[in-house]
Design a protein around this nucleic acid. Structure first.
Lengths: 230, 230
DNA sequence: ATTTGTCAGATTGTCTGTCAATATGACGAG
DNA sequence: CTCGTCATATTGACAGACAATCTGACAAAT
């Protein structure tokens, strides 16, 4: 078996993507190519290529002559992301119900049970990783590389927001119930029900996420007011 | 007014994208960075950055240690693309019906009338450009940058196939009728009908496209047989 | 005190040259 | 005809350089 080692560029892409998704680089932060070159121990050329890729994925926003910045997700954009996510996730669920193997369905159930077994107060990163595994199975099993790639990008794009909503202790049981409906529809091989359950799940998540975003906006406005009154 | 000239890199990205979409570079063709550097008159670094971006858009496939190639769309992939396009286009149509301004609706009608007025035998590129203008209005008016970006990528990805199906003289009246239904639903501000009409339009296009793809596959198989018999 | 102007320093955008690792294609041996 | 071997071309990656542009600070002017 021929094993081609991954080029340095790919490793940098992955590490940088992961760093942004896990908020090791904060939204709005300036990603100077020299600085990144030092951090990752590679040349500017490699960094610039990796940045271009993550720019196309929407994780990085490049301002001409000022360089790359970690993309910031406004409330308006979040609304749009959830709108698209709803239909793509529905399509993925439908495809999975139609085309996944019985082994893949069992695997989905397995990950779901792990998620359902978490106790309140579980670390948000643990929860997010479980959910990511769930999506991993889903996107492989739906047999559509395009929906997989696009949905993956969207999930990365608002992973920070998802970590927040997912770890809301009051919301978790509700979330699990929604996902259970997805899994059950898939086990029944009912594409229509899977579609509807996925869509409903994203809609519910959007509700919570937007409430949190608006709350944050209010907080910041209040803080801005305090600062102004200093 | 501050006018920042577009960086060379952006121009190369655009020109390369356009060249691939319009089949000036054929699918499967090897895009050596030195060669592209000569063609566009820029350094390898700029080319490599542009390639990375188009790679993320799916127009270019990079093989490790062999470089970039113009992406090839198999019949299986085309099926997947149409599946995703159907829901994204439906979402765009729905959003347009809900949120576009009356001026934008008038503009959509205008472009549609131009398309409807074409006579049989019109050049495929003229038709494709009209359809691109139609989508341009649609994607701006749907007020969702994410669905716009993703749908744009998908449309670029299979523009070659679209040019073929659009210019099929037997298919054109049918196509126009489908698009008329979209425009009329939008003019009625009926999001549900717009959704359904868009979906139906893509489904129909997919039927034709896949028939053509399978026909091509048969042709190539036959040709391969001849060659084998030489 | 606020605005405007200027200037040094840092960063981006781009080019050139270099070098190791890998793939390609031709050539000759078996 | 098939299988190694080798020269050549290309990719992947690095370093250094330099003009254009942005930033932030400080000085001048209103």
């Amino acid at each position: 078996m021929r094993v081609t080692p991954q080029p340095v560029r790919r490793q940098v892409e992955e590490r940088l993507r992961e760093a942004i998704i896990t908020s090791r680089f904060m939204p709005g932060e300036h990603l100077s190519d020299r600085m990144l070159g030092d951090v990752f121990g590679v040349s500017r050329g490699v960094i610039r290529e990796a940045v271009r890729l993550l720019e196309a994925e929407g994780l990085i926003k490049v301002v001409p002559n000022r360089g790359p910045f970690v993309a910031f997700l406004s409330a308006a954009e979040a609304t749009q992301v959830y709108e698209v996510r709803a239909v793509l996730e529905a399509l993925a669920g439908q495809g999975f119900a139609e085309r996944a193997s019985t082994e893949e369905i069992a695997e989905l159930r397995e990950v779901f049970e792990e998620l359902a077994a978490t106790r309140p107060g579980t670390d948000r990163m643990v929860l997010l990783n479980l959910k990511r595994r769930f999506y991993g199975v889903m996107l492989r099993g739906c047999r559509n590389a395009y929906v997989a790639r696009m949905l993956d990008q969207l999930l990365n794009r608002n992973s920070q927001l998802r970590a927040t909503t997912l770890s809301d202790p009051k919301r978790l049981p509700q979330t699990i119930a929604e996902i259970r409906r997805i899994v059950e529809a898939i086990e029944r091989r009912d594409p229509g029900a899977a579609w509807a359950a996925c869509r409903e799940h994203v809609h519910q998540a959007a509700q919570v996420a937007l409430r949190i975003l608006n709350q944050q906006a209010r907080d910041e406005a209040a803080q801005g007011l305090e600062v102004a009154l200093d």
